[in-house]
Simulated assay, not measured.
Amino acid sequence: MKLVICEKPSVGAAVAAALGVTGRKDGYIEGNGYLISWCIGHLVQLSEAAAYGEQYKKWSYDSLPILPQEWQYTVATDKGKQFKILKDLMHRADVSEVVNACDAGREGELIFRFVYHQAGCKKPFTRLWISSMENEAIRSGFDNLKDGREYDALYHSALCRAKADWLIGINATRLFSCLYGKTLNVGRVQTPTLKMLVDRDAAITGFQKETYYHVRLTLPGAEAASAKICAADEASRLKAACEASAAVCTSLVKEKKTIAPPKLFDLTSLQREANRIYGYTAKQTLDLAQALYEKKLLTYPRTDSAFLTDDMGETATGIIKVLCEKLSFMEGADFSPEIAKVLNSKKVSDHHAIIPT
């Protein structure tokens, strides 16, 4: 029996449907040699500072810094029931293998490993690594499960991120809150970002207008202009020199340029375009893309690649054909997409570009 652990109930339901597992139980689904359950996000997390000693329960300057020697972990208070279900399933005698089916990325790896270690599980585990929630992609992923230990470096990267957030967030927040007598939240990401906003706002507020000049030649069918000139007398001398002379066009160059279409979307470029066109924040775009991914309409959104793998040519051609049928202005058009330009396995790390399914 294989125990499959997903990140969310909705993903668990999709995996169960793809594998033909229908026996619904309390907190999991059973059948066809599988037990499919889920984490409900971060079930286990790094413990709060108070777990490391009574002296840390109260915020004080003298107790800083807080530097755990042995890190402790806590089950989220509102998710204890689901953790117990997962722990019991992991220790069931008929379970021989655990499958990590959390999101195929750094945080998904961390969510699974925290639960696996907190439950004291020692059974071998494999990794489901997919970029689409379509049934065919899920089944293909289960046919090609990876050894879970191949992703140890990804887990250690996520663990390092979590500990860095904890150390900076806990210590810096307490430090500045104690120094200034009110709660001041400090974070590894939010504080440097806020600094950039403050600096930019200060530059706008403190902007000083400066007078500058352009000398322009108004010509039949054209216009020529100088660069910015700060000194009025210098601009006047140039203007006088031009008025006393005749302008002669010595050469005319015409160029035909070809502009390449934009690359496929990675998460950052998708967030940028969604903000430009719809005004969405980065988080809104990610949340919407994640929801579409879970509804099997988009591929995995947390990607930094703008290319597809070399073996996805047929998939891309099929999707383009479907999309062209939906666009009225493409009706009857003689269009042969240059698929090769978006295929490059060397530029795909964990996940390929975001595309519709």
Rank of each mutant, 00 (worst) to 15 (best):
Y28R: 09
S328A: 05
G169Q: 09
D152V: 12
E97S: 05
L35Y: 13
G108V: 01
A137K: 06
T281N: 05
S226W: 04
S177D: 04
S236Q: 13
M133D: 00
S226K: 11
R237V: 03
A202T: 11
C242M: 13
K257F: 00
S251V: 01
P124L: 05
Y180N: 06
T303N: 09
P65D: 09
L184V: 11
W166L: 04
A203H: 05
W71R: 15
Y278I: 09
T193D: 08
D62C: 11
G181S: 10
T309V: 13
K321Y: 09
C160N: 12
A316F: 14
Y73Q: 05
L264Q: 01
T258Y: 08
Q190T: 10
F83D: 00
C39H: 00
N135M: 04
D304Q: 13
L197K: 01
P9M: 07
S140L: 02
T299N: 01
S345W: 04
K341M: 04
K283Y: 08
D287E: 15
T218K: 12
A18Y: 03
L270D: 02
W166E: 07
K81E: 14
I29L: 10
E294M: 05
W129A: 07
R237A: 07
C249G: 08
G27P: 12
D199F: 06
V75A: 03
Y151N: 02
S251T: 12
K347M: 12
E223K: 15
Y52D: 13
K79E: 06
T183Y: 14
P192I: 12
A13R: 15
D165T: 11
P65F: 05
K239R: 10
I259K: 10
L110F: 10
L110E: 10
S245L: 02
E97D: 08
G187E: 01
K195W: 02
D165W: 06
T218C: 12
A247G: 01
V99C: 04
A306Y: 01
L67I: 14
E107A: 02
Y56R: 00
A291W: 08
T357W: 00
K182I: 01
L219K: 04
T268R: 03
L238S: 03
D201A: 15
L89K: 03
K195N: 11
E7A: 02
G12S: 08
G12M: 02
I319E: 14
